[in-house]
Deep mutational scan, measured.
Amino acid sequence: EDGINLEEIREFAKNFKIRRLSLGLTQTQVGQALTATEGPAYSQSAICRFEKLDITPKSAQKLKPVLEKWLNEAELRNQEGQQNLMEFVG
């Protein structure tokens, strides 16, 4: 629908959760960090719904690039050390 690749979103949601957990981050931490930079659309409950795919494809499509960018950045910081990650997450 609307050129939205559901399979891709499903895959990303699954990987997002795995990668988030491997960084040792909670949904709350991700939500707080993103709410600070991106606004309330990225709250803990939004992250939770995204991971469960309990949102419309359109919403998922909107969240995905922001979550992807944030997660990549978080992983980079983590490679530089846990301290850097925690500063990034705030």
Rank of each mutant, 00 (worst) to 15 (best):
E87K: 13
T26Q: 07
G3W: 14
E73G: 05
Y42Q: 02
R77Q: 09
L71A: 04
F88D: 12
G3M: 15
Q79T: 10
L76S: 11
E87P: 10
V89H: 14
L85K: 15
I55L: 14
L85S: 11
Q27D: 06
L85H: 13
R49C: 05
T26A: 03
G24T: 01
Q27H: 08
F50G: 01
T37M: 09
A60I: 03
N78K: 09
F50Y: 10
L34N: 00
P57A: 11
A33N: 01
R19E: 13
S43Y: 07
Q32Y: 03
G3P: 08
L23D: 04
S59T: 10
S43N: 07
P57K: 11
E11C: 06
A74K: 03
K14N: 05
A60F: 09
I55K: 07
G90M: 15
T28A: 15
E8Y: 04
Q79Y: 00
G81A: 11
R10L: 05
P57T: 09
N5V: 09
A41G: 14
L85R: 13
E51I: 00
Q29A: 03
K64D: 02
W70N: 04
E51K: 00
L21M: 14
K64G: 04
Y42T: 04
L21I: 14
D2E: 12
Y42K: 04
Y42N: 07
G39I: 06
A13V: 04
R19V: 00
E1R: 05
G39F: 01
S22N: 15
N15M: 12
L53I: 01
C48W: 04
Q61I: 13
F50P: 05
T37D: 05
S45V: 07
Q27G: 01
T28C: 12
K52Y: 04
V30N: 06
N84Y: 06
A41R: 10
W70T: 03
L63A: 09
V66F: 09
I18V: 10
S43K: 09
A60M: 07
G90S: 10
A41M: 09
Q61H: 12
F50W: 02
L71I: 15
G90P: 12
L71Q: 04
Q82K: 13
A74H: 01
I18M: 15
I47T: 00
D2L: 08
G3N: 15
E73V: 05
G90F: 01
T35D: 10
I18P: 06
S43W: 10
S22Q: 15
M86K: 13
E87A: 07
S22L: 10
S43C: 12
L67R: 03
V30M: 08
R49K: 15
G24H: 00
S43M: 03
Q27K: 07
S45T: 13
A36I: 04
Q83G: 12
A41T: 08
L71Y: 11
A60V: 03
F88V: 11
E68R: 01
I4A: 04
L21D: 09
E87T: 09
L21T: 11
Q29H: 09
A60L: 02
E80L: 13
S45P: 09
Q29F: 00
T37N: 07
E7R: 06
E11G: 04
R49Y: 09
K52T: 12
R77V: 11
N5P: 07
G81H: 12
E7S: 06
A13M: 01
Q29C: 05
T26K: 01
L23V: 00
L63M: 15
F88Y: 12
N5W: 09
Q83K: 14
F50A: 03
E51F: 00
M86I: 10
F88M: 04
K62M: 14
K17W: 02
L63C: 02
E75K: 01
N15G: 03
G31Q: 05
S45E: 15
I4K: 11
R77S: 05
N5Y: 08
T37V: 11
L21W: 00
R49P: 04
K17P: 01
A33S: 13
M86C: 14
E75I: 04
N72G: 11
K62Y: 10
S43R: 03
A60E: 03
R77K: 14
I55A: 07
P65L: 03
V66S: 02
V89C: 12
P40I: 08
E75F: 10
E87Y: 00
S22G: 13
G31H: 07
K14Y: 08
I9V: 08
Y42V: 13
T56A: 13
N5F: 12
R19P: 01
A13G: 02
A46L: 12
Q44C: 06
P57R: 07
N78P: 05
A46Y: 06
D54A: 09
E11A: 08
M86V: 11
V30C: 04
I47G: 02
K58Q: 15
L6F: 15
D54Y: 13
K69I: 05
D2F: 12
D54N: 00
I4Y: 12
F16S: 04
P57S: 07
E51N: 01
I55P: 03
E1F: 12
Q32P: 03
S59N: 12
F12Q: 02
E51Q: 02
E11N: 13
Q61R: 15
L6I: 13
S43E: 05
G24Q: 00
R10I: 10
T35A: 13
L71W: 04
W70C: 03
K17A: 09
A13P: 00
D54L: 08
R19M: 04
P40N: 09
G31N: 03
A36H: 06
A36P: 04
T26H: 00
I4L: 02
A41D: 14
A13Y: 02
N84L: 06
E73W: 04
K17C: 00
A74D: 01
S59I: 04
F16A: 07
F12P: 04
Q79P: 05
P40H: 10
Q61F: 11
R20G: 00
K58N: 14
K14A: 06
Q27C: 15
F12N: 02
E1K: 11
L23M: 09
T26P: 00
N72L: 12
Q79G: 09
L6P: 12
S43I: 07
E38L: 12
P40T: 11
T56S: 14
V89R: 12
T35E: 15
Q61K: 13
L34I: 09
N15L: 09
L53T: 04
L67E: 01
S45M: 13
Q29T: 04
G3F: 15
T35S: 10
G3Y: 12
E38D: 08
Q32G: 08
I9N: 00
L34F: 05
Q61N: 13
A46V: 13
S43Q: 01
N15I: 04
A41N: 14
S43P: 06
I55W: 02
Q29I: 00
E73P: 02
Q29D: 14
E80R: 10
E38G: 07
Y42M: 06
E68K: 03
F16E: 07
I47M: 03
W70Y: 00
D2A: 08
D54E: 13
L6H: 11
A46S: 09
E11S: 06
I9W: 03
G81C: 07
W70P: 06
E7V: 04
E11V: 05
N78Y: 13
L6S: 10
L67K: 02
T37L: 11
L53K: 02
A36K: 10
G39M: 01
E75N: 10
L71P: 02
S59E: 15
Q79H: 12
L53M: 15
Q82T: 10
G24E: 04
I18W: 08
R49N: 14
P65S: 09
K58I: 08
L63P: 01
A33L: 07
E73L: 05
L34H: 00
P40M: 15
A36W: 00
S22R: 15
K58D: 11
T28D: 15
Q61V: 12
R49I: 03
K64H: 01
N72C: 14
Q79V: 10
